[in-house]
Simulated assay, not measured.
Amino acid sequence: MPLRADLEGESLQSFRMSGVEWDVLKKSNRRVLLKMPCCGERAIAKTSRLGTQYFSHYRKSESCDFEPESKEHLLLKEVVAVAASQSGWEVITEGRGESSDGQQWRADVLCKKNKAFVALEVQLSKQNLEEFKVRQDRYKRSAVRAAWFVGKSQFHHSKPSPSKDLPIFYVDWESGCTNPQVIDFEMPLADFVKALLSGMISWKDEPEEYKVLFLKDTCWKCGNPVNLPYGYSIGVYGDNIKTVPHCDAILSEIRKIVGNDFLRENGVNTIHSHPRLKGNAPNFPNCCVCIHCGTPEANCYLYEKYVASCKCGYANSGSATKIIGRCEGRWEVEL
């Protein structure tokens, strides 16, 4: 459902209207003149259960290609649109365009400043990496930069490696949906959008060495030897697990930096989300998974093994407990 409708030749953006103005519109006789921008059919002004003001079809035509959107999608789209507008950009939701070879597209939030165009996309439904690349390339051929705000569970196994050409940022929209956060940057989505559009978030090209630290162990299920990741370093910065809940943050960071493919190729257990696994702290679901049988290792046991290894000096010895790779670049916040 769009955040925009046409009213007698005027484009109305729901996020620009106060609650009072919205209620007046919903009761006004002019409401029957509202038209959907996607197909020209009559539009109805509504408010979602999360408080988002939006427009819906009174009766959808068979030729209309606009797909229904979840209340979470609408909320995130509104947050992005408001933040972009507050950053001084001209904003139109559900903005349409066409690539140089005639392929049409529609952006959730299309931003314009002088001759620059930026498309900001919210993607909560499943979309594979190839589809991201195809749509990103379409924007590129339209001289439009694009960034993606993706649900944190979009990729179950491994997140795409950091890329200058495909900026994908992961959003936690499930925790009440009142103040969605950009996970890897620990920033509210609204603040992140403002920083991105103001140039405070940029791609750092300098390659850096990273290390993933691990413990040698045996899988409790299949009995095969495994390596349990417990810490990392990149450049001069690094961290190890400190508590059971902290395991989730460290493992999430390792997966973000190197990805599960790299871990698997180097014989280290991969990292996945298991929110209902006994032994993981509530709301801290990321944990190790055996690369042989796929059985998860609860974080309480990972932490116990790490503490035990520290007491005997194994974790700090550095002997065969790390893999080294190169990070070709990453997105950084310059505050």
Rank of each mutant, 00 (worst) to 15 (best):
L120N: 05
T321K: 13
A5G: 00
E67M: 12
D239R: 15
S153W: 12
I183E: 13
V91W: 13
I291E: 00
L25P: 03
P229M: 04
A190M: 06
T52P: 00
L263A: 03
D6R: 15
G40A: 10
W220P: 00
A5N: 03
K27R: 14
P180S: 04
N260K: 10
W148M: 03
E209S: 06
C64P: 02
H246Y: 11
L33I: 06
Y170H: 04
D239P: 08
T178A: 07
W331N: 02
S142Q: 08
E67G: 07
I168V: 11
A83N: 06
L196F: 14
S161M: 11
T178S: 11
A5S: 04
L215H: 03
E328K: 03
L33E: 14
T218F: 13
A249R: 11
L12C: 05
V258N: 00
P225W: 10
N179P: 03
V244M: 11
L74F: 10
H157G: 00
V333Q: 09
W105F: 11
R255D: 04
S319K: 09
N286D: 06
C287I: 05
G19P: 05
T270S: 12
D65K: 14
R141Y: 08
Y170E: 00
N280Y: 14
P162G: 06
N128D: 14
F55L: 05
E10S: 12
V182C: 01
G40F: 12
G279F: 09
L110F: 00
G267V: 10
C312R: 15
K322R: 12
S14L: 03
S175L: 06
G294V: 13
E8N: 11
S56M: 09
V144S: 00
G223P: 04
S142M: 09
I254M: 01
S100P: 02
S85Y: 15
S252G: 11
K242G: 11
F262S: 01
N260Q: 05
L7A: 02
E10F: 15
A249F: 12
L213V: 03
V333I: 09
G238N: 08
V118E: 07
V24G: 05
Y54N: 02
P229Q: 04
I241N: 00
V212R: 03
Y170G: 01
S142L: 09
K278A: 09
L74V: 04
A147C: 07
Q136G: 04
I324W: 14
C288A: 05
Y230A: 06
T321Q: 15
R96Y: 09
G235N: 06
T52K: 00
L215G: 01
A308N: 12
G279A: 07
E253Q: 13
G40T: 11
H246R: 00
D137L: 12
P162E: 07
E10G: 08
F155M: 05
G318L: 07
P225M: 02
